[in-house]
Design a protein around this nucleic acid. Structure first.
Length: 423
RNA sequence: GGAGGAAUGGCAGAGUGGUCGAAUGCGGCAGUCUUGAAAACUGUUGAGGGUCACACCUCCGGGGGUUCGAAUCCCUCUUCCUCCGCCA
């Protein structure tokens, strides 16, 4: 959520910046400022009334003490009138605040100055690429065929017990999943991230805190009986651990990692691009989250990018990094780098990680602040990224490491798997 | 599931109707001392709104009520603790 006083001070800059997202925000921003004006005026009136009531109460107290009961009782009547007034004003104020908040909820984050303009993924900027795309044998298979051939994943079984998009991993497929999770967590913890195991269901307040609610309500599974949501990413529970906190400057930075399954409804997605592991309702992901001093957040973002690079290097997968353009940038993000691994058998790039700096956008909703060295309280910057999302990494490994003899296991994973070949 | 108890500033923890936005300790910040650091000592320090700055307003788990006046009394919800029962 954007901060009203920032909008007040930087209206023109915000309009320009939001235009990068293809958004004409002028009208909304003006509505925000108008609503804020109403809020402040109402607040001032209410404060005035309450101040009078407070003074009166003190007078009445004094009068009672000095024994002037008649005078005191006379003042009581006046006080009850003030009380009625203040109640009305309070209602008006509440209404003004919700109007303002509703408007603010519709506004996405301000893109960082380096974000390229653009309307969709074709305008994303490739900033880095590494690894060699392997030469596969003639009859190379896509991962869903390989998964079947080597009995690693059973999609039909998942359909039977739940529905499409809920695969069953078995045998060496299940073991490879577990190996990847353990490997990722080890990489993250040795890079200074503290490992967490968090709930997979969150309440409404958490959904609001990280920005999934109210605008992406339909993308989460909602357990209506208990009003809880299945997490679409570990970002939600992990970041919300700090909701409402006031941290000390020397507690920063905070670095967390956690493995969770992720649940996404992905309503309306069909076709070839969702085959196999490409797009699922339930998948596994290891996430990294950082809470940073505003001065350090972009250095931290670079650090996260380097960290993910290192992992992909070790896995020896061909990948590229995209800087997302304004039109493709997530609602809450100021700057996002997407990592894509090349799926050789499908001849296309698959997104496996998304690393973002949210600046104060989430922190403002979370009311997550820190006390700076000068004693002032400020919003922190929050960042997160996948390190990494499992299914497409698995797809990449299966496809790129296939040989006529079977699927080789990347060297770094062999100790975790206990085997070096799937055949 | 049954019976009790509790929720206060970044943290710990006093405070039972007006002078309480709230003692004290820790932590933070500034300083003294020190080559420097630590220790010790001194001062300072709750949050949000509002204002050019003051004033002023709100906030003692959430919501509601009693009262001229509520951290304090009542109702309700949530969470935690103790004891009993059940249980992976």
């Amino acid at each position: 959520m954007l901060q009203v006083h920032e909008i007040r001070d930087n209206k023109e800059e915000f309009i320009t910046a939001l235009a990068k997202r293809g958004l004409d925000a002028k009208a909304v921003l003006e509505k925000v400022l108008a609503a804020d004006e109403v809020r402040r005026n109402t607040q001032a009136k209410l404060d005035e009334t309450l101040a009078q009531a407070n003074t009166l109460s003190k007078e009445i107290g004094m009068l009672f003490k000095s024994g002037a009961t008649d005078k005191a009782n006379a003042l009581k009547e006046k006080s009850s009138t003030l009380k009625e007034n203040s109640k009305q004003l309070q209602d008006q104020l509440n209404a003004a605040v919700s109007r303002l908040e509703e408007l603010l909820y519709t506004l996405p984050n301000i893109p960082h100055s380096s974000v390229p303009a653009g309307t969709d993924e074709t305008d994303n900027e490739e900033v880095f690429t590494e690894g060699t795309i392997p030469e596969l044998q003639k009859d190379a298979l896509p991962h869903w065929e390989l998964a079947k051939k080597y009995a690693l994943i059973d999609f039909e079984l998942g359909v039977k017990i739940t529905g499409a998009g809920f695969p069953v991993y078995k045998g060496k497929g299940a073991r490879l999943q577990r190996a990847l999770i353990a490997y990722f967590l080890d990489k993250n913890t040795s890079a200074g991230y503290t490992e967490y195991q968090v709930p997979h269901l969150v309440n409404e307040a958490s959904g609001f805190g990280t920005g999934q609610l109210p605008d992406k309500e339909g993308q989460m599974y909602h357990i209506t009986a208990d009003d809880l949501y299945l997490i679409p990413t570990a970002e939600v529970p992990v970041t919300n651990m700090f909701r409402g906190d006031l941290l000390m400057h020397n507690e920063l930075p905070i670095r967390c990692t956690g493995y969770t399954p992720c649940f996404r409804r992905e309503a309306g997605s069909y076709g070839a691009h969702v085959r196999g592991l490409n797009r699922l309702h339930q998948f596994d992901k290891v996430e990294i989250v950082r809470i940073e001093h505003p001065d350090n957040s972009y250095a931290a973002l670079d650090g996260m990018v380097e960290h993910v690079k290192q992992i992909l290097r070790e896995l020896e997968l061909p990948y590229r990094i995209l800087k997302l353009c304004g039109g493709d940038l997530g609602f809450t993000s100021a700057l996002t780098y997407d990592f894509e691994v090349f799926s050789t058998a499908q001849d296309r790039w698959l997104e496996i990680s998304s690393v973002s700096n949210f600046e104060t956008f989430q922190a403002n909703r979370l009311k997550l602040r820190f006390k700076d060295t000068d004693g002032s309280n400020k919003l922190v910057h929050t960042l997160n990224g996948s390190a990494l999302a499992l299914p497409r990494v698995l797809a990449g490994i299966l496809e790129n490491y296939q040989t006529p003899e079977g699927i080789r296991i990347p060297e770094v994973l062999v100790p975790y798997c206990g085997f070096d070949m799937i055949s």
